[in-house]
Design a protein around this nucleic acid. Sequence first.
DNA 1: TTTT
DNA 2: TTTT
Lengths: 160, 160, 160, 160
Amino acid sequence: MAKSVNKVILLGNVGKDPEFKMLPSGQGVANFSIATAERFKDKGGEWQERTEWHNLVAYARLAEIIRDYVKKGTKLYVEGRLTTRSWDDKESGKKVYRTEVVMSELSLLSGRGEGDGGSGGNYSRSSSSAASSSSFDQRPSGSPDDYAHSTEITDDDIPF
Amino acid sequence: MAKSVNKVILLGNVGKDPEFKMLPSGQGVANFSIATAERFKDKGGEWQERTEWHNLVAYARLAEIIRDYVKKGTKLYVEGRLTTRSWDDKESGKKVYRTEVVMSELSLLSGRGEGDGGSGGNYSRSSSSAASSSSFDQRPSGSPDDYAHSTEITDDDIPF
Amino acid sequence: MAKSVNKVILLGNVGKDPEFKMLPSGQGVANFSIATAERFKDKGGEWQERTEWHNLVAYARLAEIIRDYVKKGTKLYVEGRLTTRSWDDKESGKKVYRTEVVMSELSLLSGRGEGDGGSGGNYSRSSSSAASSSSFDQRPSGSPDDYAHSTEITDDDIPF
Amino acid sequence: MAKSVNKVILLGNVGKDPEFKMLPSGQGVANFSIATAERFKDKGGEWQERTEWHNLVAYARLAEIIRDYVKKGTKLYVEGRLTTRSWDDKESGKKVYRTEVVMSELSLLSGRGEGDGGSGGNYSRSSSSAASSSSFDQRPSGSPDDYAHSTEITDDDIPF
DNA sequence: TTTT
DNA sequence: TTTT
């Protein structure tokens, strides 16, 4: 009896541009990580900060939203559930574990033009390419963005 | 700007009796794991159940409550935060990761006399020792419990 | 941009047997309330307890589960979202507000035989005596419930 | 047995500039409301949006942070607990209820210079005073703010 | 690897 | 009363 609960709530910043893959089944998968920071007092009574990194996975539609709108530096609110996969390391033969958060909810918190590693706030990457570009992922990260006219995305651009 | 959030909520059953250790600092630490179960439909449309195991850690007062009241089979509600520790495996030299939930809140959900994996036991182990025994931890796990008369704990026995 | 979040998590005990109604649409609705307790220190440094009551609403399948398995005293874990309805009081003409939690998840935490306000009861209301309970008889799922001998429900009895 | 849980998680936008009051005890209180939006399909299968308003209260330090950094339009992540106060309406004599979320955690999600409803974007009140004024709290609320030149706050300005 |  |  009693259904169990397995819920994770994270609010933090994306470390690197997400990876997006299409499974043979045709379902998309996005992988990336986000950082959260905790403050604590060390033994000397000084405030320290520790960064925690969380591995995230998303499937299907959520994976596509991530592919299209999430990049390095984006601030996100995420809900999901904890999963731990394990396999045998090929070299050592030892069991290896990897814990991930399988996402179920996402809220994009970086404003338009925010959430960029500093190069000038171009959500155009996602906005422009979101519409059309499946070759988007191949674009070298950091390449010039020639959609300078569309540096803003409007609400209507975001299909969720 | 923007404080981050790192929150885990779990409701599930304890896998084995928790381990309790006293750190050199005099602070207690409890380690154990709980299971949650997800239901999902497999490709054939059949309902399957997958069990997920979560590593939990608690410190200080929470560790002592766990030592005294939690055992194999206990149903728990837990809040905490995700942390991942890593170290180099001595044999292979490879980096190893272990993700744990550091507990901040606990609610014991097994009724009196419940929460036992089937071996007949009950809360008496904790109830009796809660009252009196700080040497409780040294008691070999599995030792006979001779407090058969006190198989019930009342709310007043629980100091939290 | 940014999807909003409206989430409530409650763990507490049911105050009275839930009310169940069938809407004209054929959809069921369950209404009940649960209590949570907070401890706080008063000005004199004494620990006090304050009970908070929460109005819950559930629809459809969740409403039926509640009708069948939840009663006065049952301990529940609930997830839901906050909603506030308002209307004009007929007598005074003043606007009246009522905030409720619309349930999306439920975990029944009272063990078999627990969750009763003290009368020694058990799940019989839902399992066996479900049939005999007053307002309960509107139940369309109709099966006469004459299993008076089966005052225990097993996990297999619960269809969720 | 079993501690209860009473937790609310909200992510939404502030409706109006918060009200801040100092209690006779010297403790500050902030009151404001935030909106969340739900999407649902109506009977005709069309997507509709419903806005839900939540009353928030914060005390002490959190109240001061809100006074200093939160205003109309600010996007917030909030954790808190549900409380319902009641009193007798003076005119009708009827019992009136008001449900509020007592805040325990806050994350400011509006970027610098964002979160303004259009009326002039003055984070300056907080930015300027945050930067320089430790006597800020004594400043009569509503006094002119002549730091118009510092409309940006940097991360270092925010003491939390 | 992020961010403040 | 907000925001997308």
